[in-house]
């Protein structure tokens, strides 16, 4: 069974039918997913600002990271869950969407960046956390920031594209973007 077949199977499942049945359900799940950005990207932003020396400068790095990360992980679980719930009913469309694929790749890179950071330069945090931030930590912060901006941009671009013929590719005029914005309109 190929990946496409799997997506087709998800698309045809009864759970997907439930998600498709009500536009309100989709909008609520979508809203939770969008507001989850605050819990995940918003908190990571503060960690990144700390690593880049731009914010929360007087807090020790290990403190900032240790206190914020549990919240981030909880938020990420919430986003993954709502993301899955949105993925099910439209699995085939997402499969075809380049923006969605880019988003997943960027998320994987974010995980990799975080892993490398935690396993290397973060280990020595007590030595440098109250002074200037070492270059490798700054790079980790910068990559994290850029990747998050990419994830958000890619996520926002999902409803637009060749396979979403919601009029977005029509000639500009009376807000074609508005029509394309609504993923829940069928």
């Amino acid at each position: 069974m190929s990946l496409f077949d799997f997506c087709q199977w998800l698309h045809d499942s009864p759970a997907a039918a439930v998600m498709r049945s009500s536009s309100a359900t989709f909008t609520v799940i979508n809203s939770i997913h969008a507001l989850g950005i605050v819990l995940v990207a918003g908190t990571i932003l503060l960690v990144d600002l700390r690593l880049l020396g731009l914010g929360l400068r007087r807090e020790p790095v290990k403190d900032v990271v240790a206190r914020i990360i549990p919240v981030t992980l909880f938020g990420f679980a919430m986003m993954a869950l709502t993301g899955l719930l949105m993925f099910f009913p439209e699995a085939v469309r997402y499969y075809k969407s380049p923006a969605f694929r880019i988003k997943l790749v960027l998320l994987a890179l974010l995980g990799l960046n975080a892993l490398i950071f935690h396993l290397t330069v973060y280990r020595d945090a007590p030595k440098w956390e109250l002074g200037p931030v070492p270059v490798r930590a700054r790079i980790a912060g910068l990559f994290s920031l850029m990747l998050w901006i990419g994830v958000i941009a890619a996520g926002r671009s999902i409803p637009y594209g060749r396979d979403y013929d919601l009029g977005f590719n029509r000639a500009p005029g009376r807000s074609p973007a508005l029509v394309a914005r609504c993923l829940s309109c069928r």
Binding site: L35, I37, V38, G42, T43, R156, S175
Partner: peptide
């Protein structure tokens, strides 16, 4: 412009919402 504005709107949400949330 509209698409970029949407993305910037979300990035602003990250900044505003993140700080208010913390």
């Amino acid at each position: 412009t509209i698409r970029i504005a949407e993305i910037i709107h979300l990035l602003g949400l990250t900044l505003f919402g993140g700080t208010v949330f913390i």
